[in-house]
Design a binder for these strands. Sequence first.
RNA 1: GGAGAGAUGGCCGAGUGGUCGAAGGCGCCUGAUUCGAAAUCAGGUGUAGGGGUGACUCUACCGGGGGUUCGAAUCCCUCUCUCUCCGCCA
Length: 426
Amino acid sequence: MLDVRFIVENEARVRQMLADRNSDVDLDAILTLHARRKEILRDVERMKAERNRASREIGRLKAQKLDTTEAQAAVRKLGDEIKQADQVLAGLGVRLREALLLVPNMLQPAVPPGRDETDNRMVRSYLEPPGFRFEPRPHWEIGEALGILDFGRAAKLSGARFAVLKGAGAALERALISFMLDVHINRHGYEEVLPPYLVTRETMTGTGQLPKFEEDAFKTAGDRELFLIPTAEVPVTNLYAAEILDRDALPICHVAFTPCFRSEAGSYGKDVRGLIRLHQFHKVELVKFVHPDSSNEELERLLEDAEEILKMLELPYRVVVLCSGDTGFSAALTYDIEVWLPSQKTYREISSCSNFEDFQARRAGIRFKGTGKKEKPRYVHTLNGSGLAVGRTLVAILENYQQEDGSVVIPRALRPYLGMDRIGPA
RNA sequence: GGAGAGAUGGCCGAGUGGUCGAAGGCGCCUGAUUCGAAAUCAGGUGUAGGGGUGACUCUACCGGGGGUUCGAAUCCCUCUCUCUCCGCCA
């Protein structure tokens, strides 16, 4: 969420941002709402000051055993007026907040202008895509042939966009999770968190999934409304919602493994086969709470921490910076890491690392303060990135390490976790 | 599921319907003392939003919402959460 005062003072910049993002937010409505609210706020506060003064006076008169009937009637009348004005004020406040929640974050100057993913800019790449003496097969063919992936039975259980992993496939998924967690905890210094997978509407609003993207989320049907998390970003970022952190505790770096649930509304026909786009998948997520002065440096480090997993697995990838039209609603700057998929002869997203600046912190009320005498609490900057999407990593391994005989070689770094160096034909 | 207790400032913890934003303690900050530190002493220490160049001033907030009242941390209703006991259960 943007600070309404920032919007008032930087109207032109905000309008430019909305244009860069192809957003249709009605800024005039917000400015009008804010002006009206401020005007009424002034009236209400004046009336309340008067009521407080008069009530104190009545208290004094009563103490002297004087008659206060008339004064009480007058204040009662004032009280009724205040009640009415207060309701108008509350209504305006709610409408203003609702409108503000739909305004996307400001973009950093480093974000290249552009409409969609074709305008994203390459930052760097690692390893050449491997050459094959045979036509590389897609991971679902490899996996089904090896008996480690079963989409048919998953559909029987849950419908489209689900998968069952079996045998070495399930073990590989589990090995990847342990491997990624260990690297981030032991080498990169993140503290592990295992959060709830069901969260409240308020929590989903804190990170920006709601109110705008409700159709993308699964939610419970009972009388208690809860949302299945679409990413660990949601519970982990909100861990410190409505708190004032100690400045010396920053940066706080967490890593969390969770399942993720997404309805994938509007993605009909995309990636209908395989593990790329499922309603349920696993992800190891990195989340940081940092001082506002260092958030961009911290983003670079978080990005490198995520890249390190691919380097250790010896998988070819590239890093792109997302253009203005492709940068997510809450993000000010986003790097995607894309891994090479031989069967598609293209790079596919495997991680998205973003600096949200104070956008989420303002929504969720995450602040920090030093111990200085006059120091005011300030909003932290929040960052997160996949480190990595586990299912897509498994896809990349199956495809990049596939052999002509149908077997798959296990990357060296993973062998201690899996206890085998190759998944052979069934 | 049944019965009960509670929710107050960064933390602990008082609070009779009427200058209570809230005693006291801890913590923290500033100063004194010290070569320095500890200890001690003095003072200061919530958040958000209005107004004023400024000293300053006003409003709101004692889990959330609603009500009673001239006036609510304090009384009433309701919701949420926490804790204790019983039952059930991975």
